[in-house]
Design a protein around this nucleic acid. Structure first.
Lengths: 345, 345
DNA sequence: TTGAAAGCGCTAACAT
DNA sequence: ATGTTAGCGCTTTCAA
């Protein structure tokens, strides 16, 4: 009969008894410490195998002061962008033997710092993804969260590398593309107000407007999902714009769908662009012109930065990097038609 | 100056010293034990706040024998179905104060049981999502993984509830729908060979064929992503079928995209159906006819089942449930044209 | 090379 | 009501 310790699970003590050695020796064998006599080691391994002993990671974590787990906090797990980051992060971390714990703040910015703190305490490091909290709050809690890597957000706090996508430049590239096609009336379907990446897009558009005073750019309120785009059809038509920059691919798809239902042709009547280049983007009808962000790679890089911080806290902190989106011209953008007259709302 | 224990982090001992009480009292206060004198409790709280003390969850877990964390193992985090399950699970678990640890097996079935075991040991319970391992292996390891909930898979092992979607029935509903539209030559674009849900679809089709001997059903090899569908165009055309049942929505979208590139009209020339009703499905052009699976709810239910098991190991085990997909007729299916002649590959 | 013992940070039974 | 003490399961000095 298999002996069990009080808890019901088989522990190191059971193996020690069965092999006729001390806990310490079992521990050494399990950790590949070669100072153990080969015969004894074999005996221990046999006992462990027979009892199907698996070390308890919680006890191990407490003793070692590390969990081999990292945490990631995202504002919305339903967003393909964050899903892709999670995927890249998880894959990269797994290769180094680390697991990932997820925390979804559901866009409730007031919950973010609590979630982050809780996650951090259970892990060896944290990735904070596009946090919605204020700069002040971020800077305040960042030190207590280290090792910490930020995505699409920066902070003045020390030792906190950031990976940020240059959404401002991307949006400018898209706008330039539309201008080259002859569009003179553009509209931007904005994202979530608290999103830093939305702020970067807005800044990029300001730069663009300064360089192209002859181009009219209307700002429209929006969000980050399909429905946002779908519901924006009226506002878009009312703006009289012929080139629409949607916050992201999802919004663009929703908009195209709405436009299609209204009998409008894309890009014949209106050109539509997205952002991110999610996998679906090339399969929409028409295929979506967008700015490609190497998003899975971003997750992977986040792990590499975090790993560096975890491995040697004191030495040279990794720097922050900026990712340039790449314009992907597809079929959803085309030459501007003769100006349309505004449609009544 | 803030005192720190050896580890560098502030521990319960520091608070105890600062408040002039024992560890135990601090612990009581932190856990809301009301047997503590209000004045002392206040003093402890003040000390904790001043030191910004946060209990170490690892120590707590070791003492309590629970981690307030559950694990989920998925075959592929890139798959929208698993993403949705993860989302539902994470949201539901979070409401009860549980976090989720993810493990992606990347469709490597030989890694699954190791991953599952490792995840389980760090958690209080596990959700095994559409495991690719054999029935024998599953049945063997299931007991060691309890509390365990299975999704889209069943096992003979005791105390292991399953949530399974009735893909067989769903596929029959879709096939019936196509037959009603006059299609007599169908083709099924299969999914990953090791996928149990693919097996269920196959079984459903057998049932369908028995009931409709006059309908020709061609089986085509496939996979589970866009590219699979996109690359299947030749095989689909060669089959001469006018009604195509794709393994899932992704495959259907890829196929529609490929058909479109060939100048074929959906549903004019060929009707295409998907499965799952992912959020994108209603925004494809044409909107995709599919079988809707309440997938996020599935993740939520998985948590409820797991919670019941965690809360009282011995009492009435929750039963297994079966989810019926709901046929969503949209624009990608239409009346069959006059039979086409086979196209040369 | 091995065992005894201390300690990781916490909770809880026991004693006062 | 509070402190003392013994674990939780493991790793790692320190002695032998």
């Amino acid at each position: 009969m298999v002996r069990k310790s009080a808890s019901g699970r088989i522990g190191i003590a059971d193996v020690a008894v069965k092999a006729g050695v001390s806990h310490a020796t079992v521990s050494r064998v399990m950790n590949g410490n070669f100072t153990v006599d080969p015969d004894i080691a074999a005996r221990v391994r046999a006992a462990a195998a027979e009892l199907k002993y698996q070390p308890n990671p919680v006890g191990r974590s407490l003793a070692l002061g590390k969990t081999d787990t990292i945490g990631i906090v995202v504002p919305d797990l339903a967003n393909p962008t964050f899903q892709a980051i999670l995927r890249g992060l998880s894959r990269a971390a797994a290769q180094d033997g680390y697991r990932v714990l997820i925390a979804d703040s559901f866009e409730v910015s007031s919950e973010e710092s609590i979630l982050a703190g809780e996650a951090r305490r259970r892990c060896d490091g944290l990735v904070l993804c596009a946090p919605r909290m204020s700069d002040a709050e971020l800077e305040e809690i960042a030190p207590s969260l280290r090792p910490l890597v930020l995505i699409n957000r920066t902070t003045a706090a020390a030792e906190v590398p950031s990976l940020v996508v240059d959404y401002g430049q991307g949006v400018q590239d898209i706008a330039e593309h539309l201008v080259e096609l002859g569009h003179t009336r553009l509209a931007f379907l904005a994202g979530p107000p608290r999103s830093a990446s939305n702020g970067m897009r807005l800044q990029g558009l300001e730069t663009f407007k300064a360089a192209h005073p002859q181009v009219e750019v209307t700002m429209l309120e929006g969000g980050s999902d399909f429905d946002t785009g779908h519901e924006a059809v009226d506002a878009v038509l009312e703006s009289g714009a012929t080139g629409i920059l949607a916050f992201n691919d999802l919004v663009a798809m929703g908009l195209m769908s709405g436009l299609h239902e209204r009998g409008l042709d894309v890009p014949g009547d209106i050109s539509v662009t997205g952002f991110d280049d999610i996998p679906f983007a090339k399969y929409t009808t028409p295929a979506l012109t967008t700015a490609a962000v190497p998003i899975t790679e971003l997750g992977e890089q986040a792990w590499h930065q975090l790993r560096a911080l975890i491995r040697n806290e004191e030495s040279a902190a990794p720097g922050s990097s900026r990712y340039q989106p790449r314009l992907e011209v597809r079929a959803s953008t085309g030459p501007a038609k003769a100006p349309r007259s505004k449609v009544h709302g």
